[in-house]
Design a protein around this nucleic acid. Structure first.
Lengths: 141, 141
DNA sequence: CTAATCTTGACAAAATTAGTAGGGTATTAT
DNA sequence: ATAATACCCTACTAATTTTGTCAAGATTAG
């Protein structure tokens, strides 16, 4: 499995904020209920996104969360990496000092996979996804 | 992380068998030592690959493991799936009956990623990897 | 025979994921 | 002011998955 619930939940929440971008803050509870995500858990995820600079918050009554940048300036890769760390195909590309980096063949295919994944997530913005969403919902009617 | 050690170890072992294809069985210990994989653990992995029909075994002294098919007829995807189950980007593509399959936007990007991964692993055979290995080792001299 | 090798199944340790819980702090409508 | 609202933070726990370990047995070459 490439992504855990962290990335999935976090991406859904970010997309929700993107959808309401420019329309004021969205509170935690409403996101948590809409997507059936435990409130406290989602809170931790959004907190990470805030620390990474992708989300702003407004405290107090009528407060909530909102994107810190325009949806077109936030990629799926940014969100996923903030929550899950580097998105990698295999541990050996990160940790291992196996000493065979230059001659390991399996490594090559892992690298190919990873490049391909990164290519997708780094070239899809939240805005792209909002547009896709609009399209899907239109077709559903 | 897309792949655990299961897939990585199993793929390395399979590649070793591919490299010695047609030259008799290779015993467990030699693979386990060459790649620093715990013997009993590797045993379980090879056992799965046997059940899946990708490798044969010869018991007794001088016995060992060998590929059940030609390297060109075994893909990386076959090996990885036998060991790790379906290679998937997100749980929600497999289990969830979230009821929103037709309108969920995040799902689309997970599907794109998954297709891209499958495209790579299903179009790379062990033979391809042996060739790459030959090339790498040549260049290293 | 016997030493090398695979077979099988149960068990255990370690790591990661997925939450829970609860008090704390800031803001604002009233 | 103050009460309600909502984010902030840290620690803990439960569940799951990964990564092994172990032991007794079956098979075969020499």
């Amino acid at each position: 499995m490439l992504l855990s619930t962290k990335g999935r939940y976090g991406l859904k929440a970010s997309l929700e904020l993107a959808f309401f971008y420019g329309k004021g803050p969205i509170n935690l509870k409403s996101i948590s209920e809409k997507y059936s995500i435990p409130e406290s858990y989602l809170e931790q995820l959004l907190s990470k996104l805030k620390k990474s600079g992708y989300i702003d918050t407004i405290r107090g009554k009528q407060g909530g969360y909102l994107l810190a940048k325009e949806p077109k300036d936030i990629t799926v890769g940014m969100i996923l990496r903030a929550l899950e760390g580097d998105i990698t195909s295999s541990d050996c590309l990160k940790n291992d000092k196996c000493g065979k980096e230059n001659t390991c063949v399996t490594r090559i295919i892992f690298e190919d996979i990873e490049k391909s994944i990164n290519n997708i997530i780094d070239n899809t913005t939240l805005e792209d996804m909002v547009h896709k969403r609009d399209k899907i919902h239109k077709e559903a009617h």
